[in-house]
Amino acid sequence: MLSELQASHYIDPAVFEREQTHIFSKLWIFAGLRTLLAEPDAFLTRTIGGIPIVIQNLSGVLKAFENQCAHRQMPLQFEEYGQRRLACRYHGWTYDADGRAKTIPDEQTLYRFTSEERSSLCLREFAIEVIGNLVFVNVHETPIPIEQQFTKEFREQLADISSHFSSQAIHTCVPARYNWKLNFENVLDANHVAYVHPRTFRPLIKNVAAQPAEIASETSVDDSELSSLSFCSTMAMSVQPWPWHAMVEQYGPEDTYHNYFIYPNVNFISVGGLVFLIQQFDPVAADRTEVRFTLMTAKEKQRIAALPAILWGHLKGEKRVLDEDLVLLEALQARLHAGGRPACHGTYETQLRRVADVYLRLMGDKA
């Protein structure tokens, strides 16, 4: 069966711009971890649907604003993560918890705003939802209800597992020369593991060949619904024991691999309930993606002096697996061309066909 997606969906800059409008500017997009925003004025910055965003802990409440000063559009926060008041480094403007300009140095002398102009000096605010320790942002003026994108059962699953995160995490961002959709399709396709990861990932997984066929039956909602694209899958895996495992609060049964597919661009996995990895495929251009890794262990029962080294070691292992995928996906992207044949799907690729169907509906290309 031929895919409904054409090569143009992966290589055309015009299609990419429409995706920013119809998908990333309309859906709830994962932005970061609540655990990293626990302290006053802790912040993280992201770009969603082409809009620079800052999420900040303001008086104990998480707020999402456009990361541009109302004065001359200078970014309020430069770093990806940090702890700093919501203030512009260019001319010293500061903002309150509602995003209103709070103080403007030498306001009466230098600016002389009218009362109407002064009241309009406010940051654009965006909707925010926190599911467990996962923070989502929607930049649309009228956000869709989050239950339209994620079922109640799925949100409860995310809240449950993310409540086991340690407060420490390690991050990295890997540039890749392929379309973001190729990466999401790749993580849905367990059949490739035996061929692409025979020495890294495949030896850990049991009965991996059966997994793709099982995916199709795990979604209990209408196949045409957006919420059908986000779900959890589990499989048995062999987890090598390490002494530090006894020092954390393990999630779920031992030797289990949890895989959460969060549409449109996140694959969240748990290795034995001991290590958690969030992979996000951020679109940069039609042929470029930033793969963002956030990795943490389960909550510590006691202080683990070697935790930074443990996180670094696991991150390097996950990066090796990504590199194996990256070689093939970049080769695939480089050879896609206008007028080329669409992909041919087998019976096990039901979920890939579902993703394509809902994607075209979101894009307005299918009724």
Rank of each mutant, 00 (worst) to 15 (best):
E153S: 14
G49H: 07
A38I: 07
F201T: 14
F293H: 15
P143R: 03
S115F: 03
Q68A: 15
E254W: 01
Y178I: 00
I310R: 03
V284H: 01
L307P: 02
S115W: 10
L62N: 05
S220K: 13
L27D: 09
Q148E: 14
P143S: 02
E39L: 09
P52R: 08
T151C: 07
L274P: 06
I128Q: 08
F65A: 04
Y81M: 09
N133L: 06
A216Q: 10
Q77M: 13
K366M: 09
R361H: 12
S115D: 15
P308F: 10
S8H: 07
E129F: 01
A216H: 13
V196M: 09
V193H: 08
P212L: 06
R202V: 01
M74F: 11
A14V: 14
T289H: 03
V139D: 07
W93E: 06
S119H: 07
S233K: 12
R353H: 02
A31C: 01
Q108S: 14
G317K: 05
S270C: 01
L328M: 15
T151M: 04
V355T: 14
T256N: 00
Y260D: 02
D96E: 06
Q148D: 11
V54K: 01
E300G: 03
N207W: 04
N138A: 00
E249P: 03
I170Y: 06
A298Y: 06
F281T: 05
A210I: 02
H22P: 00
A14W: 08
M296V: 09
D98M: 14
Q279L: 11
G317Q: 15
E141S: 12
K299T: 08
I161T: 12
E79I: 00
H140A: 15
L27S: 03
R100Y: 08
Q6M: 14
L37T: 04
E300C: 12
A159K: 08
Q250V: 00
H91W: 09
S3K: 14
A334F: 01
W312K: 15
D287T: 15
S230T: 11
L134A: 08
T21P: 01
R112N: 15
R84T: 11
V291A: 04
D287I: 07
V130P: 02
D106E: 11
A38E: 12
Q149G: 02
G82M: 08
F268D: 00
R34V: 00
R155M: 15
D12M: 01
R199M: 06
N183K: 01
F113W: 15
A343F: 12
A42K: 07
A338I: 13
E218V: 14
L329Q: 10
T219D: 12
A334K: 15
R84W: 05
P145H: 10
